[in-house]
């Protein structure tokens, strides 16, 4: 029992030390945290509640734009700013940058939570594959709308100010923004899944009709879960926006086929409906992706596809599911002699 808090402290120490021990991997490690955040939030609905969304990327992209609009809007007219892109250079003071960063993250989180409630009101009427496709449709449509919206730079995208300090400090800052959000999310979920709320969400996954028959406020729970999920994805999008500086709508913000799918793959790899599964899956996925993108260039997508197929076909429960089934096999093997003895007595 006393070992548990200790290992969590050790883990925290590793998280804090990582960017200093591996300074050349700063951006890589930050991206790893982004993967962990989007995987954990995807699992909130996909794994814990049984609603497989393919549209969570909507919140990532929207979070980016909300952060940009808030930051720029506090200093300039957003329309003028995007019009002048590439032409006039706009200066931002340190205060404008950091208040934009803070309010941008907060605003992105809250705005995306509100979007989830509104969109969810319609899409949660859909079940199974229809929900997945419905939410994917929302992501694609939002990306198209934004890419035609001149005020936010349309297809050109939008540029945020550059981090005012030196580049390396900036990298460390973005690492800790992602890591801090990820740790906060993990702690939040560890608590949430133990509450009555967590149990009700699992009940919706296991038998929604029964949950309704028992009087559980199913729609409220579904909306609240997606809103909480969207809140964290929105924050992650906001941090990405500042990290990337310039981003455009279809390839970066609303990247349905990359990050939008990767988050699902991470969860399937690690184990759906568990707390650690998405974390482990994100780590495995990110390492695998970086290695193949470096050493198997040209074949990286084939390798990734093969990994997905193997996971889905042979490791249905992902890494965590596989470990748990091994462990219960071992437990059963240990209890077997006892059972046999009891059987013989009877």
């Amino acid at each position: 029992m006393t070992r548990k808090p200790f290992s969590y402290l050790l883990l925290l120490a590793v998280i804090i030390a990582a960017p200093f021990v591996f300074p050349s991997f700063g951006t890589q490690l930050a991206t790893l945290w982004l993967m962990i955040i989007v995987a954990l939030t995807w699992d909130m609905t996909g794994g814990q509640m049984g609603y497989n969304s393919l549209g969570n990327i909507t919140f990532y992209g929207t979070g980016m734009y909300v952060a940009a609009v808030i930051t720029i809007g506090m200093a300039y007219d957003v329309g003028d700013y995007t019009n002048a892109a590439g032409g006039g250079i706009h200066a931002f003071t340190d205060l404008q940058y950091f208040s934009g960063l803070f309010l941008g993250m907060l605003g992105a989180g809250l705005f995306c939570a509100a979007v989830a409630v509104i969109v969810g009101y319609v899409t949660f009427g859909l079940r199974g594959p229809y929900f997945a496709i419905g939410t994917l449709g929302v992501a694609i449509a939002t990306g198209e709308l934004v890419s035609n919206w001149e005020w936010v730079g349309a297809g050109q995208g939008i540029a945020l100010p550059v981090y005012p300090g030196d580049l390396d400090t900036g990298k460390v800052l973005f690492y800790f923004l992602f890591a801090g959000t990820g740790v906060a999310l993990f702690v939040f979920l560890k608590w949430l899944y133990k509450t009555r709320f967590g149990a009700a969400v699992n009940a919706i996954r296991d038998d929604e009709e029964k949950a309704e028959a028992m009087g559980i406020h199913t729609l409220q729970y579904k909306l609240a879960t997606w809103a909480m999920s969207a809140f964290f994805v929105g924050i992650a999008g906001a941090i990405s926006a500042f990290q990337l500086i310039h981003f455009e709508p279809l390839e970066t913000a609303y990247q349905t086929i990359n990050l939008g799918i990767f988050m699902v793959v991470c969860v399937l790899l690690g184990g759906k409906g568990t707390l650690w599964g998405p974390v482990i899956g994100a780590i495995v996925f990110h390492v695998f992706k970086e290695v193949t993108w470096t050493y198997l260039l040209g074949w990286q997508w084939v390798a990734l596809g093969a990994l997905i197929v193997i996971t889905v076909v042979y490791f249905e429960g992902g890494v965590v599911g596989w470990i748990m089934s091994k462990r219960s096999e071992r437990l059963e093997a240990r209890e077997q002699p006892n059972d046999a003895a009891v059987g013989a007595e009877q």
Binding site: K194, T195, R196, A200, A211, M214, G215, I216, Y221
Partner: peptide
Amino acid sequence: ENMLISLPHRKMRFAEAFGCN
């Protein structure tokens, strides 16, 4: 767990869902 999930939600305020049994 089946029993705890069946607690009367009609007698519960939404905030109480964030408590533990």
